[in-house]
């Protein structure tokens, strides 16, 4: 039996997307973290969500936990939030997938729900541990809105390339 290439491409793409988030945030910090607007780039969530629809990944939850832990260790130093949230998002996406047949609009809507929930829960955890004291209203206007807009744009641009890559290498 031939081993499909996605076995190697999936973790590779996952980690490249993860580190791209950090690099982009630093490169465009002037545009991403302004006074009344901050954007959280979540390209690796895009990769995880797309893989549910278009790739046959072995041990997806193992990779979700690994990538979540890497984010926590390397980027924030607070271990826990992403370790819980990434598998949760993966699970939710799998549940939602069972009700729909994937098309551009369906994947887009599911991805938006995922990002919104993810950003909200991450905000909530940070309020709990005292890293921010921003009110919910300001959070929605200054972080959630721009974050959704940015990730939506990233989705629209990257949908076809990622879909093509995943379907090709899953064969």
């Amino acid at each position: 039996m031939r081993i499909s290439k996605i076995r190697y491409y999936y973790p590779l793409g996952l980690f490249v997307a993860l580190f791209l988030d950090g690099t982009l945030s630093n490169m465009f910090a002037g545009a991403f973290f302004k006074a009344s607007l901050s954007i959280e780039s979540r390209l690796f969530i895009l990769w995880v969500v797309m893989s549910v629809f278009f790739a046959k990944v072995e041990h997806p939850f193992f990779w979700a936990v690994t990538v979540g832990l890497t984010f926590d260790l390397f980027f924030t130093g607070i271990i826990g939030p992403f370790f819980m949230l990434v598998p949760l998002i993966l699970y939710l996406t799998k549940v939602m997938y069972s009700f729909f047949t994937p098309s551009f609009i369906v994947v887009l809507l599911i991805y938006l729900i995922d990002i919104a929930l993810f950003t909200l829960l991450f905000y909530w955890i940070n309020v709990l541990i005292g890293f921010t004291s921003v009110s919910l209203a300001i959070f929605i206007s200054s972080t959630l809105g721009p974050t959704l807009a940015f990730n939506l744009a990233a989705f629209v641009i990257l949908y076809l390339p990622i879909k093509g890559l995943m379907e090709m290498s899953s064969r």
Partner: peptide
């Protein structure tokens, strides 16, 4: 030199 910035609104952190 700066490798990355934490992609988060709540951690104002660079690596």
């Amino acid at each position: 030199y700066v490798i990355a910035r934490t992609p988060s609104s709540w951690q104002n952190q660079i690596i």
